[in-house]
């Protein structure tokens, strides 16, 4: 600090300022790196918001501007398409319209692409229910289309859900990328949110059967 600001500052340095203003707490901070206020007690969550629900609300009941919450279900007939297909992003795939270079395709895990087939993640329970075996080909169909995929039985995906990596199924680009795997975009459809008119629903109803 220098010039007019330095002159206006009542202490020699910022450290001296902190030492004086914080008093005992400064010594504790220098020694331990933190200071704990033992007198502090947290306020009750119930008192935090003065709304009907005592929780955060986007619009209070008085205004009544929002329609009641209605979950938007993914498109498709549940009795015919018992599963839900969702997309996910892999760290090793460019998921937009820009294609992955050969380096990424070569580095891609064997649990995402095998030969020319994309692997979809399926929970062991789901796989058992539909007679699907790890690594085998299967037909993935949604109300929008069909694709041949391979099954990757994986505990990390929720039962009843199929996950497909974004960024495959290109028809453009070089021989390292084009015509490999299937695109989620070609299989998905959107539902309009009745309140906002925006595209909603993450996923689409799907069926996975032995190829």
């Amino acid at each position: 600090m220098g010039g007019a600001v330095g002159n206006a500052f009542a202490w020699d340095s910022y450290e001296a300022c902190l030492g004086q203003t914080l008093g005992d707490r400064w010594d504790v901070l220098v020694e331990q790196g933190f200071w704990e206020n033992t007198d502090f007690s947290q306020g009750r969550w119930a008192d935090a918001f003065e709304t009907d629900s005592s929780k955060f609300e986007f619009a209070g009941s008085q205004i009544n501007a929002l329609p009641a919450y209605n979950p938007v279900s993914p498109p498709g007939d549940e009795s015919f398409y018992p599963l839900v297909l969702v997309p996910y992003d892999s760290m090793r795939l460019a998921s937009g319209y820009i294609g992955s270079p050969p380096f990424l395709i070569k580095a891609l895990e064997a649990t995402i692409l095998k030969g020319n087939d994309v692997l979809v993640e399926v929970n062991p329970a789901t796989a058992a229910k539909y007679g699907l075996k790890d690594g085998r080909q299967a037909t993935l169909s949604t109300p929008r289309g069909k694709a041949v995929v391979k099954v990757h039985v994986f505990d990390g995906i929720m039962p009843g859900v199929i996950a497909i990596a974004r960024g495959l199924g290109h028809t453009a680009y070089d021989k390292f990328l084009a015509h490999k795997g299937a695109s989620y975009n070609a299989l998905s459809a959107v539902v309009e949110d009745p309140a906002t008119g925006l595209d909603a629903a993450w996923g689409i109803r799907a069926k996975l059967g032995k190829a």
Partner: peptide, 22 residues
């Protein structure tokens, strides 16, 4: 993320194949 793999391939002239999934 696989950056180590890509860096290694570029540094050490690792060859490519059209289908490198096996």
């Amino acid at each position: 993320c696989g950056t180590c793999m890509v860096a290694c391939m570029a540094e050490n002239n690792v060859p490519f194949r059209e289908d490198d999934t096996d």
